[in-house]
Design a protein around this nucleic acid. Structure first.
Length: 448
DNA sequence: TCTGGGGTCCTAGGACCC
DNA sequence: TCTGGGGTCCTAGGACCC
């Protein structure tokens, strides 16, 4: 038996914990550069604000409807997420975080009434963190996701499903407690597009074939669906029918690729700005790489203009540079900058860049080869300076203690922040709230 | 003026080999 | 004038998730 627990409107709910005056008001949280809405309170959804909708399209609602917008405060959200996962772990030894705001809980072997347990979990998260959650329980992950969707919908739109069920299933929905007929009623009233694994493209094709509700989908022929779509989608349908196709997946696997990319606050036209940004992204990516104990075998760099500026010339090259497996910021940064220089062409308004580390392997599986550069004796850095991994460790420790960017590779931006315009590409975040739980000097203060 | 930043997995097709 | 078939590996691209 799986439970899927997730925080309702996570980013908005977190902001409200620290500023209760936001309760009841339409609220959105914006992506970097305050570009698009990535979280919406129920009130904002009522106003018609869509997921990922550009902020400039809805900003007029500030005046007319009191819409409030905040810049994303990921440091705060991550910390609150970790606290939520810790609480969930009190209820089962096997909790697998799925995203920042949700986790699968494996309840196999856990005795007692699991619906009651889930309500208790929900109450605990609400009391200790102030965050509202929903829980879906079912024998497969896809059904647990569906149950979670139903629990949330029953809570938010009481008229959507039959009244009696709406009351009973709001906040916590356990498919094991539903009769077959009841489950069919709910599936018939749920859009096929709300299923986990059905995106816009597949939903459109299903609709065109007359498959509109979840009930339509589970009644369709699996072999045909597999042929029309893929084995991935076949699993989705089987799971909806109650056949488990997705395992528990303990220990979250190390990432297979690490990407750091960002849209620029302002268009960048000069090579200097591009190199600074790429250097910064490569540096961040290297930190993430070391955090999971991996080394990278190749570095992929891309730069691109804005596809939204249709009347401007477009250019979006990408270059992959193979390297001897390494986690050294200096090597990764210099390879990434080299790639950026080779791609750069003047005359374009660049809007975004990114650095992806691929061909990742666990460092220990390579022995000392990567750290010592056994085959790189010809390179000057192989035989000089302090031990590389010790240096990187020291850098990571200082950055953790004193805040990101305290110690940097020479070529990254802040090192030359004095140059006029050096940070023209930096993100804009005009509306970010304090990082209440992770920075001493931003801690909330209570005055008597 | 202003359009997110991460990730996963699968498939198709080309290169290459025998 | 003639031009196989099957296997593997790699990459790019497309679907999905939050």
């Amino acid at each position: 038996m799986f439970a899927l627990v997730d925080v309702n409107n996570m980013y908005c709910s977190v902001e409200r914990v620290f500023n209760p005056r936001l309760d009841g008001r339409p609220l959105v949280v914006l992506s970097s550069n305050d570009g698009a809405c990535i979280a919406r309170s129920n009130e904002a959804k009522e106003l018609g604000v869509q997921m990922a909708q550009p902020w400039f399209q809805v900003r007029h609602l500030q005046k007319s409807h009191g819409l409030v917008a905040l810049s994303a405060n990921f440091e705060l959200y991550s910390d609150m997420s970790a606290r939520m996962m810790a609480i969930a772990s009190r209820y089962s030894p096997n909790v697998v975080p799925y995203s920042i705001d949700e986790a699968f809980i494996d309840f196999s072997g856990i005795p007692g009434d699991l619906t009651a347990t889930s309500r208790h979990l929900r109450a605990t998260v609400l009391q200790e963190l102030g965050l509202p959650t929903s829980v879906g329980l079912a024998p497969t992950k896809t059904l647990a996701k569906l149950a979670n969707h139903i629990a949330k919908t029953c809570d938010r739109k009481p008229g959507h499903y039959p009244t009696e069920q709406s009351r009973r299933l709001a906040q916590v929905c356990n498919t094991a407690e539903l009769s077959a007929a009841e489950l069919e009623t709910l599936m018939a009233a749920t859009d096929v597009g709300d299923v986990w694994g059905v995106g816009r493209k597949i939903a459109a094709q299903l609709n065109a074939g007359g498959v509109r509700s979840v009930l339509d989908l589970v009644s369709a022929d699996v072999a045909t669906l597999r042929r029309q779509f893929s084995v991935v989608f076949e699993k989705t349908v089987l799971e909806l029918r109650g056949t488990p196709c997705m395992g528990v997946e303990e220990a979250p696997a190390a990432k297979q690729q690490i990407l750091v990319s960002r849209s620029f606050g302002k268009a960048v036209t000069h090579l200097d700005g591009i190199v600074e940004a790429v250097s910064e992204f490569a540096s961040r990516a290297s930190e993430k790489l070391r955090l999971q104990g991996s080394v990278a075998g190749a570095i992929q760099v891309f730069i691109r203009t804005s596809p939204f500026r249709e009347n401007e010339r477009q250019y979006s090259p990408s270059v992959t540079v193979p390297v001897r497996p390494t986690a050294d910021s200096r090597k990764i940064v210099s390879a990434a900058c080299e790639a950026a220089r080779s791609m750069f062409r003047p005359g374009f308004n660049y809007a975004k860049a990114g650095v992806m580390l691929v061909d990742l392997q666990q460092a220990e599986s390579l022995g000392d080869q990567s750290e010592l550069d056994l085959f790189g004796s010809g390179e000057p850095e192989a035989s000089e300076g302090p031990d590389r991994s010790a240096l990187m460790q020291a850098m990571d420790t200082l950055n953790r203690r004193f805040g990101r960017g305290a110690v940097r590779i020479g070529s990254t931006t802040a090192a030359k922040a004095n140059d006029a315009g050096a940070t023209s590409w930096a993100v804009r975040q005009d509306r970010r709230t304090p990082r209440y739980t992770t920075r001493w000097n931003e801690m909330p203060v209570v005055r008597g």
